[in-house]
């Protein structure tokens, strides 16, 4: 098996419908689906498919409510998909039983959350080592590895502090260290910098890029900030109302937006790019 030709993550026809009795949905029946929506069901993810290669940073971008968080949670089944498949490294995550799923979450993926999700009663060191503790790694080993991760994110010396006494940026560093220490195949990040000040956000983006140079993780990164998407993403998907409206390299999306929605999204960047190219006349 030649691994490099296979995508590390493959998502096939993923759907998530909130607020209905899930067994009885025929997703191919468009009229029935519309009827459900009229009755209050929300189709948060609508037939999404994509592939991500090892080492790639894949950004999912879209406005609030477009289904980004739902999608990224479906990848490790924090939210149970209504239908479709998630395949990681050849294994069908959607077919796993509870035990396999827990092993998958412990070993293959790690997630960073917008609101950090740190344990307030544990100090930085214990928070970073949390995943290893769940795995049953010995105290000595997990502290050693946690210390390394803490150093990687620039928090050396803060091991004994509690999350409540750290700034937002520092808390998110802890969140990132907690994910890195797992040495996961895939790093999932759901708007990790969105609740930080613009300056700190920028700093964290730079550091993530630097970190990525050394760790070379496969990253799925969710954001609603185009700038962030452009800076971080190798490829990006633009999401609207549960659908991937365009997937591609950031530059391609700016230059050739697939529709009006994407065009509006990338307008400012587009203007700048064209100005830089000395092509003012092409402006709308």
């Amino acid at each position: 098996m030649v691994k490099d030709n296979k995508p590390l993550l493959e998502v096939r026809n993923l759907w998530k419908v909130f607020g209905v009795n899930e067994e009885n949905i025929d997703l191919n029946d468009l009229a029935a689906l519309e009827q459900l929506e009229a009755n209050g069901a929300v189709v948060a993810v609508r037939n999404v498919s994509f592939r991500v290669k090892r080492g790639e940073v894949f950004v999912i971008m879209g406005l609030s409510g477009s289904g980004k968080s739902t999608l990224i949670r479906c990848l490790l089944r924090l939210i149970e998909p209504t239908s479709g498949q998630v395949i990681v490294d050849g294994e069908d995550v959607t077919a796993m039983d509870e035990k396999q799923l827990i092993q998958f979450r412990r070993n293959k993926v790690a997630m960073v959350f917008q609101h950090y999700g740190l344990l307030p009663h544990r100090n930085v060191l214990e928070n970073v080592a949390f995943g290893l503790k769940l795995r049953g790694v010995s105290r000595e080993e997990r502290e050693e590895r946690a210390l390394k991760a803490i150093e990687q994110v620039g928090l050396k010396g803060w091991e004994k502090y509690y999350p409540g006494s750290l700034s937002g940026g520092m808390q998110q560093r802890v969140g990132i260290a907690r994910a890195l220490v797992q040495d996961p195949d895939i790093l999932l990040m759901d708007e990790p910098f969105s609740s930080l000040d613009p300056l700190i956000r920028r700093e964290m983006q730079d550091e993530l890029l630097k970190l990525q140079e050394s760790v070379k993780k496969t990253i799925i990164f969710v954001t609603h900030d185009l700038n962030e998407a452009l800076r971080l993403g190798d490829r990006m998907a633009v999401m609207r109302e549960g659908v991937f409206v365009q997937v591609g390299k950031p530059q391609d999306i700016i230059i050739k937006p697939a529709d009006e929605y994407v065009r509006r999204f990338v307008q400012d960047e587009r203007r700048m790019a064209l100005v830089a190219a000395g092509n003012r006349k092409a402006l709308p």
Binding site: L76, L78, I102, Q103, F104, R105, R106, N107, V109, A110, M111, F113, H115, Y116, G117, L118, L119, P120, H121, F130, G131, K133, L134, R135, R178, Q182, L188
Partner: peptide, 26 residues
């Protein structure tokens, strides 16, 4: 907090670990 519990779940906490490490102490 639901956020904290979700994070623990994402890192592979079993139901028992969730109770012992997160829910009871908090």
């Amino acid at each position: 907090s639901a956020t904290v519990q979700e994070a623990a779940r994402a890192f592979g906490a079993t139901r028992w670990q969730m109770l012992k490490e997160v829910r009871l102490p908090l």
